[in-house]
Design a binder for these strands. Structure first.
Lengths: 122, 122
DNA sequence: TTAATTAGTTACAAAAAGTAACTATTATTA
DNA sequence: TAATAATAGTTACTTTTTGTAACTAATTAA
């Protein structure tokens, strides 16, 4: 059985900085996970509850990738039932003020228009 | 024939601001398009060339969505061959400084580790 | 002996993104 | 006259990413 969990990257030979950034946070969940981990350490299950629309599978994959990139820290305790705690690294914390600005930016963008329209063409 | 182009949104009833933000820019290309449109107006084909890994199909879909959300402006000229120019709105421009911070943040994150590892388990 | 607890994993399904060929319109070229 | 070029998309199809629901292992408590 073979499972691949590495996200496929956008080729970026000329090292475009925004493409590089998107190779790190250009997906639905990474930023949300960072935001929820702000100022606290959370167990896997707590994260799954707080980010209630994420699936455990995707949460697990994202956390692995984020750990690999040095955005989150994973501490595993040899207990039963298992306990695994996730927290932000310095790098992860450094992302927070940027995410807060993003939140402010998006405040008056309305998504209802898209939500209600059906976007069908015949 | 029916084509749906509306992106599916993360449900966000408690109006989590970061979830809202991710419903707008939580994908591979939106931020890259904004970044490339900084300080200039570009035609569809020019965008496709400058963002060379994006497909015309996805570029087209993204631009529609971004126009709908008020991030880009689309100007179409009745010429042959057609000319369509895209530029940032105020809202789009407001995103730029945030993207620049993101670029700075991501500068010393190395993706090679993920690239080279195979992530296979048996 | 059975249920409860927790951090994942697994096989499968749906959605998003990628590919290559195609369309319509008019001007230019052969 | 007919074929070619140019441009902004679209189309049918394939691959990748994300989502769903059920499952596992290990130990404690009932």
């Amino acid at each position: 059985m073979v499972t691949n969990m590495g996200r496929k990257l956008i080729e970026n030979h000329n090292e475009c900085p925004i493409t590089h950034s998107m190779n790190i946070i250009g997906n639905k969940w990474t930023s949300i996970i960072v935001y929820v981990l702000a100022n606290r350490k959370l167990r896997f299950g707590e994260l799954a509850i707080r980010i209630d629309k994420i699936s455990r599978k995707v949460l697990s994959n994202q956390l692995k990738e984020m750990e690999l990139r040095g955005i989150v820290n994973r501490e595993s305790y040899a207990e039963t039932p298992p306990r695994v705690e996730y927290s932000l690294t310095k790098k992860g914390e450094d992302l927070l003020p940027i995410l807060n600005q993003l939140c402010a930016w998006s405040k008056n963008i309305d998504l209802e228009a898209v939500d209600e329209k059906d976007f069908t063409v015949s």
